[in-house]
Design a protein around this nucleic acid. Structure first.
Lengths: 350, 350
DNA sequence: TTGTACGCGTTATCAG
DNA sequence: CTGATAACGCGTACAA
């Protein structure tokens, strides 16, 4: 019986380190390879040896080191990176949840980083994730230029961009049908008999915001809406700002009877103000969010979790054909949500 | 000048693989170690050599492999694992956001896994994260028994349990002052003149739920509330269920004029129903959530992001003294939130 | 059935 | 200033 020597970094010398196969081997008096065989499902090992090794492993609390295993030739990591701007924002949290759910089914783990709407920070995060050799990246772009990733992409690294496309990079992406969605919102208001309509949006430098504003302008023309009956209000970042803007709008233009909120935060502010005003103004929101029913707001079926699942799906597809030069730019269709208000039945009459 | 040989796995042979230091060295005609020196900030390398190496690195798109680097003796991973039950739940998303923010400031990345309230799944996730050699783990426990982690803990691995303590494991934890919080909620309602009070909670098998129910019972006694003026309703998992329960409650007991919702989901359901009913029922929520103001709900300042930051902080502290046997069981104090309603000014009068 | 040699990508050590 | 060598933890290929 040959006893493997205890190396200076063994758990005996350094209890803080995780025990290694060498530790297990040393204790059970076998070679490292034999210990390895036992841990991986006892291919061709005598029962006695297997027992000894298992006992030793249990004793020291041995746990295989995936890092070391994945370092081996050609082996792929099962980590996927995700870069979003803010995890506390329900939209991005939903996105992450949807992606995590789908990836987890494939045995892939998700590492999430938040860019905080800072292009430079985002670039560093992507760099860091690439250094960690993640299997692929799902990114909601904050930056203006992704050409620095061109080389990675060309080499066959898998990227999926979500919600907006990546400027200056040919890569897979999933975006929402902003034009169709806004048109549906407008048509909904028109069907409800609205004649003077306003749209509230974030800064036009944000891609989705400008897309939605442009879509509105086009739809407005094709629906033969007179410019006098239309208000476009931009640069709204928060629910609070949306509330104030709505108040001002309705004060100065009492004829307005329909409002389109281009995202969930704006919708909350608009809804609150309109509800408080007791005016008969119809509100429709681009995003679906939990308390929309309560505020009497119609919404599209634009569900962030669905978007997350779709982006995970696209990434998985890309894994199968990493070097394929044809990119998929999926556009998620959205339509008005059937109004199956969860709480319709809870109205209490006395 | 000696040229390092191209190995069969070099990027030339396998373009899908990331380029390595060996590739860079081969191209620039220097040794691997010299290439390494250049990439790590040119300690003692001639400018000529450095230039050559940098050019080669740029050419092939070299990026240091952190996995390999971390494999080295004693080097610590900068990955922290987090196990929660559901990322789409605003409470857990906020928790994750708070932790991510704090950890990111220390250069630590967060890998998030969702246990979906399944103890077995949670155990596997923890196992998987340990195999990945994360630096530490932040866990919102779903399981019933964590004694299997005893050995890891003893060895000095850093765990932080959040929101509920870990059964059968001595480890650091951050929990909320459930008793103090519930008492504050009750006192708030009493101050508002409520005389008949109900509390709605999730399944008592959930630790926080039972803690809060027990706290209510105690507070009720010390406040000399008659049992006839009190309703305790449990087993409510969703906003919808909370809505229906509220409806039933108010129909059968029209004297009820104050409701305590023991979490955010319940609060949304209760708030929605009460608002629709136009009854004068005061509602107070244990958790703080975005649309609380909107629903006219008072809340504690129990902010999930704060809890997330605190758990990250505790983990960082633990890193400094991994083998310390004295555990910190922090209890986050909560009090009624000052009602600085964002939208107070937006009321529109005509 | 078991063990030895080597490679994965990187850095530390020590020699040139 | 530069390079060969060993080591990190594990698995593969081959040998005993």
């Amino acid at each position: 019986m040959k006893v493997t020597e205890l190396k200076p970094h063994s758990i005996v010398a350094n209890p803080l380190a995780h025990p290694t196969l060498a530790d297990v081997a040393a204790i059970s008096g076998v070679s490292i390879k034999t210990a390895s065989r036992v841990m991986n499902g006892s291919e061709q090992v005598s029962e006695d040896t297997a027992d000894k090794v298992k006992k030793a492993a249990n004793l020291v609390g041995y746990r295989s080191n995936r890092i070391a295993r994945e370092l081996r030739v050609g082996s792929l990591s099962n980590l996927v990176g995700m870069v979003i701007s803010d995890l506390a924002n329900p939209f991005y949290a939903g996105l992450a949840a949807g992606a995590e759910e789908r990836l987890s089914d494939e045995g892939l783990d998700l590492i999430i980083a938040t860019a905080r709407d800072d292009g430079e920070r985002e670039k560093n995060l992507i760099e860091s994730l690439l250094e960690r050799r993640v299997r692929g990246l799902i990114i909601v772009p904050s930056g203006e230029d992704y050409s620095h990733l061109h080389q990675e992409r060309k080499r066959g690294f898998s990227f999926v961009f979500v919600d907006r496309p990546a400027p200056y990079l040919d890569a897979d992406s999933v975006t929402v049908d902003n034009r169709g969605g806004i048109t549906a919102c407008l048509d909904h208001l028109l069907e409800q008999g609205c004649t003077s309509i306003a749209i509230l949006a974030d800064t036009p430098s944000i891609w989705t915001a400008s897309e939605r504003i442009e879509a509105f302008k086009q739809a407005m023309l094709s629906r033969k809406l007179d410019k006098k009956n239309v208000h476009i209000i931009a640069n709204i970042h928060t629910s609070e700002q949306a509330g104030f803007a709505t108040k001002k709008l309705l004060k100065e233009n009492p004829e307005v009877d329909g409002i389109i909120a281009t995202n969930d935060l704006i919708a909350m502010g608009v809804g609150q103000t309109v509800n408080a005003s007791k005016l008969k103004v119809k509100v429709v929101s681009f995003d679906l969010f939990p308390t929309a029913n309560l505020l009497n707001i119609a919404t599209l079926d634009h569900d962030p979790q669905r978007l997350g699942r779709m982006s995970a799906e696209l990434l998985l597809k890309r894994f199968e054909n990493p070097t394929d030069r044809s990119f998929s730019t999926q556009i998620m269709k959205v339509s008005m949500r059937s109004n199956n208000s969860d709480f319709e039945g809870t109205q209490i009459h006395e």
